[in-house]
């Protein structure tokens, strides 16, 4: 069994509870132990527009906290994963910057060393655990659900920082979804952005981006829309009705976290996966079965 420090970030542990619940249920079944750690803060990515140095320092701080455990870090939120990875990349290649940042961290008795790897949801599921293991655990038939994937911009770009899948043709989510008996299909809008980061200053435009993509997904007859990012999920699931209004459409697309669907396939009860927290019409899928 391999252990990782779970770095939860902000959005998942303050409101996107279904992601956290399903993560905590699914990974132990896949022989991955998640270790909780006190003291984490925001990764800084969402406030990069305000002060980029602040983001760098916040990420370095979080890595250094986890490093005390001597374990690698699992950051399920793609935005956190990008922030931590970018910070690591800068600090590992620029000793002067590392020294300066460590100067700040000293106030809290922390030191960034650069020993821990930063692992994303796809690194963990696809590259570390692997499709075979997932296939073995899949028991509940998912009836060849026709599913559309949404990776989220930060999971696949910028590739220069090192991202877990191809920036223009990501397929790891599809492979995972095939392994549990669903039918993922590519669609033209697959790489479109949810607009979530505009929520801070242009919330209407953010919802329009969300609505435009989801409307296309609905028109193409997908059964479900699968994501891995708490920011994206908040747009597509939590705010689906409002997003629909911006494009004058009645949207009824079931939206699930990848880990929720994995959990269902592994036979975990929908309660434990937080399925009642999805605000989109997931009942349509008849996957409940408590």
């Amino acid at each position: 069994m391999k252990s990782y420090v779970l770095y939860p970030g902000c959005v998942m542990p303050t409101e996107q509870y279904a992601y956290e619940m399903s993560i905590r249920e699914v990974f132990p079944l896949l022989d991955v132990k998640l270790v909780d750690q006190k003291g984490f803060s925001c990764c800084g990515e969402p406030i990069k527009s305000v002060n980029q140095m602040l983001s760098l320092a916040l990420s370095a701080r979080n890595i250094s906290l986890a490093e005390k455990e001597g374990l690698d870090i699992f950051a399920p939120c793609p935005m956190c994963h990008l922030a931590l990875s970018e910070s690591k990349r800068i600090l590992d290649s620029d000793p002067a910057m590392k020294k300066k940042i460590n100067n700040f961290l000293a106030d809290e008795g922390l030191t960034y060393e650069g020993k821990a790897s930063i692992v994303s949801i796809l690194d963990l599921l696809y590259d570390i655990i692997g499709i075979e293991k997932i296939k073995k655990l899949a028991k509940k038939p998912l009836n060849e659900l026709k599913v559309a994937t949404h990776y989220g911009c930060h999971l696949i770009r910028p590739s220069e920082i090192g991202r877990p899948d191809d920036s223009e043709n990501p397929q790891k989510m599809e492979k995972i979804l095939e392994a549990i008996g669903t039918k993922p299909l590519d669609y033209p809008e697959k790489l479109d952005c949810c607009g979530g980061l505009l929520t801070a200053n242009l919330p209407e435009s953010a919802l329009t981006k969300t609505g435009q993509k989801l409307q296309k997904v609905q028109e193409q007859g997908f059964d479900a829309f699968i994501d891995t990012c708490p920011w994206c999920h908040r747009q597509y699931d939590s705010k689906q009705i409002k997003a629909g209004e911006t494009v004058a459409a009645k949207l009824e697309v079931p939206v699930l976290y990848l880990t929720q669907l994995l959990g269902l396939s592994f036979g975990i009860s929908s309660d434990k996966l937080g399925l009642d927290l999805n605000l989109s019409p997931v009942d349509k899928l008849n996957l409940g079965g408590k």
Binding site: C10, V11, P13, T14, E15, Y17, F40, C42, D276, L277
Partner: peptide, 15 residues
């Protein structure tokens, strides 16, 4: 230290 504090959320059947 976080973007927002923990929230109470509402389930699909309004709990």
């Amino acid at each position: 230290g976080l973007l927002q504090d923990v929230k109470n959320i509402t389930t699909r059947d309004n709990k």
